[in-house]
Amino acid sequence: MSRKYLAAPYLLWALAFVLIPLGMIVYYGLTDSNGAVTLSNILAISSPEHRKALYLAIGLSLISTVLCLLMGYPLAMILASTGMGKGAFVVLVFILPMWMNFLLRTMAWQTLLEKNGVINNLLGVLGLPPISIINTGGAIILGMIYNFLPFMVLPIHTSLSKIDVNVVNAARDLGANGFQVFFRVILPLSIPGVISGITMVFIPALTTFVISNLLGGSKILLIGNVIEQEFTQTGNWNLGSGLSMVLMIFILVSMITTFITDKEEA
């Protein structure tokens, strides 16, 4: 009985900082500035500029997620196969940047990529033409990958480390070569890690506005930037809430689809 009350602080927290704000978003999203119920804030997603921002955000975060997966999976495999001592060191190297402030790390990239930034200065010294990455979709993808790659690597690493080495040995014993062992045993068994990796990269990438603000300048607006501007600059909380709800529903639907397809495959 009394153990129930141990959850009280968390419940209070969840109520104050999750449920009530969520309720407020829903309230603002479904009303206009006079408090009358309307769907216009939600339907506003169909306006060309909002649609463009949403598609761009989806496009860039999808590309980032795929690239994170392609880079992160081999990396996780190397981590899982190196000996305990070495593996722990490499994991540390990967986690280390995560101990630094997210904003600071992204601003560092700004300095690196600027027209007169570190990279272009270096290229100049070498007699090479400068490159312009800053304020492009490419710079945003770079920032997303840099910031979110560890979130892809760690869950995959965890699921790979859980695979019983004898299961891999059994596959080899039954005649499977390296490729067959990977595609028939290791990859299917690591799917849970891949899914949580995708979730942990795709969602923050889709909703980010900091990375696009810093590395995309004001030229590239993602759906996150549009929502941020509605709250902080235009002061139209109703529209901002409505667009947030659309984004939430999109994420919810895509996650549910992912989990269902995964279950059907298994």
Partner: peptide, 20 residues
């Protein structure tokens, strides 16, 4: 010779069935 090229098979201690 690699294990997958040997004409013998192993039964492992903890069964090692493919869980998926």
């Amino acid at each position: 010779v690699a294990p997958n090229k040997r004409p013998l098979n192993t039964v492992f201690q903890k069964y090692a069935l493919f869980p998926h």
